[in-house]
């Protein structure tokens, strides 16, 4: 179901089952369990959602519905380098959608996804307060401003190497 292969370990599964056990029977157990799962795995793989659905006895559609509703949950793993493109009003007006498109093209994945080698993941964010630099993207905490689509390849190249 998800494009990145599931690489969970036995230890992670043990932690997950422990969390499920401690919340089972509570009303609204799903939220805290998903929260723990997100912390244990860094994201919510399909396989993990299936285990949660079975163990808590709730339909998978409900687990998936909650996982895709709250922005605190992610369905894809984070890459080694996390790229975040600001789609706040100021950046958007200055063409940040074009920047995002250039990154997607360069890495051959869509916003919200992670490359198969787990090197990069892309997400979008709301205003980061650097409107003077619009359009802005952030890679591993470092801010790049006044971008043009043509700049993207060169910047990514730096990260490609390590």
């Amino acid at each position: 179901m998800s494009q990145n292969p599931f690489e969970g370990t036995e230890g992670q599964m043990k932690d997950l089952l422990k969390s499920i056990k401690s919340h089972r029977g509570e009303a609204g157990a799903l939220m805290p369990v998903l929260h723990d799962a997100q912390n244990i795995y860094g994201y919510l793989p399909a396989e993990v959602q299936t285990v949660i659905a079975e163990e808590l006895n709730v339909p998978l559609a409900e687990v998936y519905g909650v996982a895709t509703f709250y922005s605190q949950f992610s369905l894809t793993p984070k890459g080694k380098h996390q790229i975040s493109v600001c789609l706040g009003t100021a950046c958007y007006v200055k063409g940040s959608d074009k920047i995002l498109e250039a990154i997607e093209k360069e890495l051959r994945i869509s916003c919200g996804e992670c490359t198969p080698d787990k090197k990069f993941s892309i997400e979008s964010c709301r205003c980061v307060g650097a409107c003077g630099l619009a359009p802005v993207m952030i890679i591993d905490g470092e801010v790049y401003g006044k971008l043009k689509p043509d700049d993207v390849a060169g910047i990514l190249d730096k990260y490609m190497k390590d």
Binding site: V58, P59, L60, A61, E62, Y64, G65, T68, F69, Y70, S71
Partner: peptide, 10 residues
């Protein structure tokens, strides 16, 4: 008690 469908995304 099937729950095959539900709202998804936001």
């Amino acid at each position: 008690t099937i729950g095959a469908i539900g709202p998804k995304n936001r």
